[in-house]
Write a protein that binds this DNA or RNA. Sequence first.
DNA 1: CTGTTAGCGCCTTCAA
DNA 2: TTGAAGGCGCTAACAG
Lengths: 348, 348
Amino acid sequence: MGAQPTVSDVAGVAGVSRQTVSNVLNAPELVRPETRERVQEAIRSLGYRPHASARRLRTQKSSTIGIRLDPITQDGISGSILDRFLHALTERADRQGLRVLLFTAAGPEDEIEQFRRLSDAADVDAFVLTSTFNGDPRTEWLIEHGLPFVTFGRPWGIDDMTDPEHLWVDVDGRSGLRDATDHLLSLGARRIGFVGWPLGSGTGDDRRAGWLEAMRGGSGLSPAQLRLLQVETEDVVPFGADAVRRLEAQAGPVDGVVCVSDSLAIGVLTVTGGRIPVVGYDDTPMAASLGFSSVAQSLDEVAAGVLELLTGAHGGRVDAESDMSDPRHRLVAPRLVVRDGPPLIGPR
Amino acid sequence: MGAQPTVSDVAGVAGVSRQTVSNVLNAPELVRPETRERVQEAIRSLGYRPHASARRLRTQKSSTIGIRLDPITQDGISGSILDRFLHALTERADRQGLRVLLFTAAGPEDEIEQFRRLSDAADVDAFVLTSTFNGDPRTEWLIEHGLPFVTFGRPWGIDDMTDPEHLWVDVDGRSGLRDATDHLLSLGARRIGFVGWPLGSGTGDDRRAGWLEAMRGGSGLSPAQLRLLQVETEDVVPFGADAVRRLEAQAGPVDGVVCVSDSLAIGVLTVTGGRIPVVGYDDTPMAASLGFSSVAQSLDEVAAGVLELLTGAHGGRVDAESDMSDPRHRLVAPRLVVRDGPPLIGPR
DNA sequence: CTGTTAGCGCCTTCAA
DNA sequence: TTGAAGGCGCTAACAG
């Protein structure tokens, strides 16, 4: 707990100048192995650790990325996603010598104010954004102000989608739903319903498209029939129950249901139980607990992608070398987790 | 994104020296109102913001608190707790000019290594610990090394419990379970079962004690009968189902069940449905979604307590003024959230 | 390969 | 009440 040793202390013990110590730390190849070893020995024996603030002041970079903690996780079933993403991000960031700093904001405008605060104070030198939405003002502001950032989630506005300044990582929900639907088809189901979010949410529409693709290819149903097999509702458990009732009312009995989220899948299951297979999305702990299939996102891959994009873009913008595979975004493939047997939940 | 202005720039514009600017920021009362106003105007017009690292280097404090993100949230139903706590903590910390830095660790030993790393580098000057357990080595290490910290969760070891160095905030689970049980008693139930965790977890035992107290007072059952009305199991949904079956096998039909967690309550509900009232603990989103009663912890109060203890203890250790109410810990009262009507879930 | 010199932006003496 | 130095711990230039 006493005063931490400084480079001077290390230099003294090793019998070199402060600068040499700094070199051992930041450019070891410049120092003769013999000297280097001596310095490292001194570092070890003193328990020296560079003072982060001093280094940051000197280098003018905080090596810290800021991420906003979303306000109270809506329905909350999928709240654990951010949690798991954060964990993966923190762990991987740490390996690269980056820190993760949290902040909160009341809304997009306030979040922008936080961007300003944190970057002006040099507390943070890059941001990670989650839950992007159509016409998101945050990305525009960040681009305008030249602050590095990566979003977890595609920019769904048409223009932004191809903005070379906008780096993003996302999960390929379409392929996830396609897999889920194909799975049910392979089980012999044909009349597979889709319970989705209201039209207009990029993410929801993308997932719906996956269901539609698979159904077109493998169900043998007409477009008119397919139209009847989908319903939309807000992401709340009991609404999932209502939705599947509506679905069967308008389209007749179904063989299976794929849902845009685990929340809705739970709602559906309270009505259908083990009668027909139901697939959710996100593979939340609830899916595992209650025993239904779900599409799992690899948050670890997402976190890895985010960091690669961030460090690749750091300072030198996008790395010219890796130009072959478009280095400005990553689309991570999700994985269907199949759970057999009747779920633990069902109608009374 | 040009270079941020510095105190010198502000001083130049305001026509004063750098120190005066610094004074306006850190000790405004020392500066004549007239000058102060002029300086503040300059700050505003330049958009000046103090450089966090420079300040930290100079003051030798990071104004940052570190918190570990627990490894993959176990069963995960209650994972959102940390999430909500983090949110509250970040928000309140921000108001006091404190930042929240995340880190991860593979286990207690590794976490201690992270403590060392973060404090040696002056990245963090206090820690918040969650999920404390019996004989936790982390608190001991922190005390030994004189690092400020507060735990969310009581130290369950007998010795540590009263260690004046150990600041903690916890939720009074005992009173929460007492309330839950009293509620069921007031509904006319008498044979109320308890589904808990295996003996030896401080938190679990504390909650069980609340159930026992209420039952002793209001159920009119004998100690022998009460003994039969409790079962223990790991915190996994399907185990909750098994547990309540065991419970009724050994004690006969029950009138109601209170559980040590929402996870177990969900498991219980898959067996009992709306037949008898069931109460969970944590008031997770699942409780709200599926419609059963649960004991809610006020994570915001916990966060507030943690910060008070931390800033109170900062530097000057515990504040001598507030000696009347023991300032070394806080026990926050939880609140029973009653949900009427049959839950959305039940046996098939 | 190593040492010297000069700040990064801020705040805390101490004088004026 | 304001101004003039000095230095927190580190690293980027340049010399040697």
